[in-house]
Amino acid sequence: MTKAITVSGLRKAFGRTQALDGLDLDVEAGEVHGFLGPNGAGKSTTIRVLLGLLRADGGGAHLLGKDPWRAAVELHRRIAYVPGDVTLWRNLSGGEVIDLYGRLRGGLDKARRADLLERFELDPTKKGRTYSKGNRQKVALVAAFASDVDLLILDEPTSGLDPLMEEVFQDCVEEERDRGRTVLLSSHVLSEVEALCDRVSIIRKGRTVESGSLADLRHLTRTSVTAELAGAPNGLSGLPGVHDLDIQGHRVRLQVDTDKLDAVLRSLSRSGVRSLTSTPPTLEELFLRHYQDDTLDGTQTPEPAASAPVAGSGSGSGSEKAALR
């Protein structure tokens, strides 16, 4: 597969603030790529560099094989962008703005425009100021999905949409994927990311801390295991990747690095398993771990800090939740 977006070692400073500090991002052509990170991590800055609005201080960025700064106009014919905060001209109607954006890109599919207006239940005759936040976003979304482009860059596009419209949005992104288009989706709605994204990149403080498929990322974290055994457990504490081991008679609770799960299960079955619950980390735990931990570096998992984790939650996130309170 070819790359739709390649970013390597991207750096950008605003005065003393280092917004991007060696950021990497790879988006394959035809995939829906989740772009995640806490507020202020540099997501929007990255996107604005990719759009040629900001000039990078260092590192490389390529969009559809071209330099986004030098070939901005040429590239923008093939790109549709939806900002997180859509501002409209007060005296232009929504329909006019949709058509204008379409004309500023490669053109607009009229049938699809009409279809999208209906699905998003958007009145195109209202003027800029009279739209609510969600409706302003719909204006930008209809323009983006109806445009004839290869790449969609969506920066928190659903923050103002209701659950019904969120569903319409997800359908639209699926359709874009089916048509072979690439989508870069910056979002805080984790269910949306889980439902839509083939791969995700997580950034923190201007750096990429994690990148891969959701399955890959889950693999890097811990699974909680609770087991009722026939006999006393044996040798669990010596196994690599086991954390927060808690043995009460024949009952065992532990956390294990997901790639070390196999050895733990074999050890458990040697003692005879009566019941077993294994819970993979939830997406929230996955992200919270990345969002919250200040000392995190690359793919290294954090050292356990709390010894009494809640069953079903990773020790890392458990301790961090506690720390937050």
Partner: peptide, 18 residues
């Protein structure tokens, strides 16, 4: 504000028209 047109006129055809 009164409602506006549902479609843009031909003159709103780009940055200059805007």
């Amino acid at each position: 504000a009164r409602p506006g047109p549902a479609r843009a006129s031909a003159s709103l055809n780009g940055a200059t028209g805007l």
